[in-house]
Structure formats: C-alpha cells, structure tokens
C-alpha cells in the first residue's frame, strides 16, 4: 500500500501525529483531572441507587429523547434555585450513565421534580399534557399505558450498569425482576424485598393507577418521582458544597 513516496508519506504521518498531539492535550487537560479527584463529586455514603423499575423508567426517558426539551441541572443562579430548588450537586448524577443534564429548556428543569406532583397528575400529564397545562408544547405519551415493562430483562441492565461502576449487589441483580414487579405492587409479597434492598424511603406504590398491569407509564412516573430524591445532601443543614463546586465569588 505504502511504499512509493516514502519520504512524503512520512511528512503527512508526522502531520497527522501533530494534529493528534496538539488536539488531545486540550481534552486531556480538562477531562483527566475530573477522573482523579473525589472533590468533583461530594461524598455521600447514603446515596440511593435507582431501583430496577426506576432504571426502566430512566431508559424510557432516554428512549423518548426527553433531554431534548428538559434539563436536569439547576445552575448556581438565584432565579434557577428559586424556581427549581437547591442547585444540582455533582454527586446527584454520580450513577447517571449517561448524565441527562440537557442543554435546552423548552419545558422546565426536572432535576427536582420528584414528589412535586402526585402520581395521578404525572400520569395524566404524560397521557395528555394539554388537559392539565393548556399552553404546553409537550407530545402526548398515552402509548406508554399500552406497553408492558419486561421485568425479566432488568437483571442484565443492572449487570451492565455494575460493569460501568454502579454498585449494585449480587442480590439486587438476582432479584431485579421481582423488585421491578414489587415496587409497583405495594400489597403484594414482593414489595418487602424492594424496601430491604433499596431502602425504606423507596417509593413503593402503583404509579399509573392501574393495578392490572405493569406498564411503561408506571416505570416513567416512578423515575420522575425519584428525581432529586436520591440523596438528602442538598437539604442537610450546614452542608457546604465542596471547594470545587462553582459559586459566584470563587475565582480560583
């Protein structure tokens, strides 16, 4: 293949190497430090994990491209904080593969939407947004009611997430299917295990108001209701964000 203009060839390869070296340094300088520090992410030993049902809901959020119109990142600006709540901490998206901070707010920020509205409101708003908010531009997601969640698939999802660093235990992975069902069935036998594995604060209830089947509506509402609820850190009195968290005065 190569061999004719050997010398000229070396020129262009040197050129390519030059471009690579010159261009990679910028990325390296900015990104590498973020992987070496713990200070980027505040410590929170009590950080909750997404349950299998919430993970399924998060995957629907990803699949439907919700990030196109909704951010999940409250900035350190007064009006952002007053409108949406405490500014987002790095730790809160620690287990988000990928992060869904978003770049555009055609709709409002959702970083702390969990618990703000009832399950009924969320489900109805997803089915027909303009029935509750007449000026809304959001698409109708009524079809979520018609698609069933597949609990038996969740174990492989949790396993893949563990591979990329989310600390799911063997027990959580083994019981992923049961926990998916249990979280939406508060009176059933499987719900106790969800509390055991994911903590007493886990939302265990039927999210879409239809006990007969476990739909994607259940999963997505379960996910929306956990947003901003994975850690109590922002609400803890006297907790200061770490030194590297942005603030207006800090000019280091």
């Amino acid at each position: 293949m190569f061999g004719v203009h050997k010398k000229l060839e070396r020129n262009s390869i040197a050129f390519v190497l030059g471009v690579i070296v010159v261009a990679s340094i910028g990325g390296f300088v900015e990104i590498a430090p973020l992987f070496t520090i713990d200070e980027t992410v505040e410590a929170d030993p009590d950080m909750r994990l997404y349950t299998p049902l919430e993970t399924a809901g998060r995957n629907i959020y990803i699949r439907e491209g919700c990030y196109v119109c909704h951010s999940q990142m409250i900035r350190t600006l007064r009006d952002d904080v007053e409108r949406y709540g405490h500014y987002s901490l790095a730790v809160e998206s620690k287990y988000d593969h990928p992060m869904l901070w978003g770049s555009k707010r055609t709709g409002p920020d959702l970083a702390r939407v969990g618990g703000k509205y009832s399950d009924e409101w969320q489900a109805q708003h997803l089915r027909a947004p303009r029935s509750l908010v007449p000026a809304s531009k959001m698409p109708n997601y009524a079809f979520l009611d018609r698609i069933q969640v597949q609990p038996d698939k969740m174990a492989s999802h949790l396993r893949a997430l563990r591979t990329v660093g989310v600390p799911y235990t063997d027990e959580m992975i083994e019981n992923a299917s049961a926990d998916t069902i249990g979280q939406a069935d508060p009176d059933g036998d499987l719900s106790d295990g969800v509390y055991d594995r994911y903590g007493a604060e886990t939302n265990v209830r039927n999210f879409d108001g239809d006990m007969r089947k476990l739909t994607e509506m259940d999963a997505l509402v379960a996910y929306l209701q956990i947003l901003g609820q994975l850690t109590d850190l922002p609400d803890a009195p006297g907790v200061e964000p770490s030194s590297d968290t942005p603030s207006e005065e800090d000019n280091s």
Partner: peptide
C-alpha cells in the same frame, strides 16, 4: 498523579 498535580499542570504548563 493527584488532582492537584493535574490542575497545576493545566493552569501553568498549559499556557
């Protein structure tokens, strides 16, 4: 390879 080392590198030698 600590964080401080990387930050120092970025802020000084980068320039």
């Amino acid at each position: 390879m600590t964080h401080d080392f990387f930050v120092m590198l970025s802020k000084s030698w980068g320039l």
